[in-house]
Amino acid sequence: MVDISFGPTPGKRPDPASLQGGYLLQSRRKRLYSTILLVFFVALMAAGFQTAQDRNAGDFLAGLHRLDDFPREVFSEAWTNRANLPALFLKFLPSLIETLNIAAAATILGGLVGAPLAILSTHGLARWPRLAPLFRRCADVMRAVPEIVIALVLIFVLGAGPVPAVIAIAFHTAGALGKLFSETAENADLKPVEGLASTGANWAQQIWLGILPQVAPNWLSYALMRFEINVRASAILGFVGSGGIGYDLKIAMQWGGGKYDQVVAIFLLLFLAIVAIDQLSSIARNRLVKGR
C-alpha cells in the first residue's frame, strides 16, 4: 500500500510486450525443476527398494505368490475348528481388555504429564517464560523415544507385565500430547486470563479457569486420537515385550500349526477392537471439535 502512494518500486519492471515469453520461460523452468525433482525421487525410491531387497532374507517377487499362503493356512485351519472360536473369543477377552487398559492408562498418564508440559512451554502462558524453550525441548525428546526402548529396559528392572508398557507408552504420549496441547493453547484467547489476573487470581487459577475451559474440547479430541494410536502400540509392545493380547498372539504364533484357531481369534478380536475404537473416537472427536 505504501509503495503505491510513494511511486513505483525500484528495479526492472516486466516488459508488457514480451509478457507471454517471460511467462512461458518461467513455467518451462518450473516444469524442468519439478521433472528433476521427480526423477531424483523415483531414483531414490528404486535404489531404496533395491537396497532393502538385497538385505532382505527373501526375495520380493519370489515371495509375492507366497503372500497368501500363511493367511490361507491359518484361516483354513481355523475354519475347520470354527466351533472353537466363540470360546476362544471369551478366552482372550481379558487379554484384549488388558491391552485396552494399558493404552487408556498410558493416555491418561501421558495427558496428565503432557498438559503441564504444554502450558509451561507455551508462549504467553508459561509460568517461567525463560524456561519455555527448555520444556519444549523436553517434550521433543520424550516424543522421539520409541516405546519399545523404554519398555524393554523397564522389563529388565520391573519384570514382565503391563506396567513397563504403560510407562513406556505414557512417556512417549506425554511428549506427543505436550506438543499438540501447546499448539492449541497458543491459539487460546488471553482475555479471560487478563480478567482473572485483574481479580487477583494466581497463575494456576488463571490457567485452570481461564485457559482450560477453552482448550478442553481440542485437548480431549487429541487425547482420543492418541488413545487410538496407543491401542496399536500396546498390542505391538505385547508382542515384543509382554502383557496383553500381543503376548498371547506371540505364544499362539510360536506354537505354529495346531493353534491357528487361536491366532485367528486374536486377529479378529484385535481387528474388531481397533475398528470399533477408531469409529467411536472419530464420532466423539467430531462432536468435540465441531459441536454436535
Binding site: 532382505n56 520380493f60 481387528f271
Partner: peptide, 28 residues
C-alpha cells in the same frame, strides 16, 4: 482402507514376514 488400517501394522508385519522372510524389505 478401513481394513488395511484396522488390521494394523503388527498383523501385517507377521503375515508379510512369513512370505518375504526377515529383513528391511518386509518392514517397509
Amino acid at each position: 482402507f478401513d481394513f488395511l488400517r484396522g488390521v494394523d501394522g503388527l498383523i501385517w508385519t507377521i503375515i508379510l514376514s512369513r512370505a518375504f522372510g526377515p529383513g528391511p524389505m518386509t518392514g517397509a
